[in-house]
Amino acid sequence: MTAPPIIRAQGLTRRFKVKKGQVDAVRGLDVEVAAGEVVAFLGPNGAGKTTSMRMLSTLLPPSSGTAEVAGHDVVAAPQEVRLRIGYLGQGTSGGHNHLVRDELYTQGRFHGMSRGEAKRRAGEVAEAFDLTGLAKRRVGTLSGGQRRRVDVAMALVHRPGLLFLDEPSAGLDPQGRAALWELLRGLRADLGTTIFFCTHHLEEADRFADRVLVIDGGRVIADDTPARLKADQAGDRVLLTTRDTTTAVTAAAIARQLPGVRNATVEGKRVTVHASQGDTALPDLIRALDAAGAAPRSADLRRPSLDDVFLGLTGKSMREDAA
């Protein structure tokens, strides 16, 4: 597979002028995404996620650096890029006073479809997103979740090969979110659509992304599969409870000697053992402790979440952020 990447950004920066000088929102973004990949773009608020996405989707010219998206330079040939991408912003795409049906149709026309084709596609996406019953409603009268469905439907009307989704599931309930991802996965399976998305729901990134990019302070600080990020950045934890505090200290010392164990910390009678693969480390650990007469009273395995990774990398919790 030597297909060129569908997104290739090199040293992308964006500087905003503000009252007191300037802000470097993005400071040297290097990203490569292969066609067909599903990539999650994570970072705390103000990390530069939206600014980066806007540069990649031709909405904002970069201050420096280059980006090729869908085979074309975002600055030199924005029209070519726009023909090939779908974009879902954080706002509401549909006009307040416009009917859902009309907006879906108009969006197809804006993408150069004939009247008949635009009408047909509007019907198709309305069906796919369960919007048929809302077709004659004005966008302004819809609930937040319904509006979001209209937004996504509009971004897909022209069957783009590459989708930029800025918080696609914001305002959706768990059911709506599941339905959205089922659709996106279908799209990728059927058409090989590449999906590049930001989200505040880390479990969404964990479940659906092939790869996670973590951005902080305008730079990518981690780039890997969710599984490897969790193993490398956070690792598993085995929580042991021992009979007394002396045993706890002994147990920690023994644990540190075992292969695959990174560290062990003591807190009263409790020992926390950090291991990259907790499931395989656990039986060895118990046997070793038992042999030394320091058998634990209970043992619990904790797998890391992307939130642990995120906290470790940025020092900020995504969950507080999302509130």
Partner: peptide, 17 residues
Amino acid sequence: VGEAKSGAFERMLVTPM
């Protein structure tokens, strides 16, 4: 101005129109 605030204008700017 309203559509620039809501996101409807942005959505048009991403199309090749």
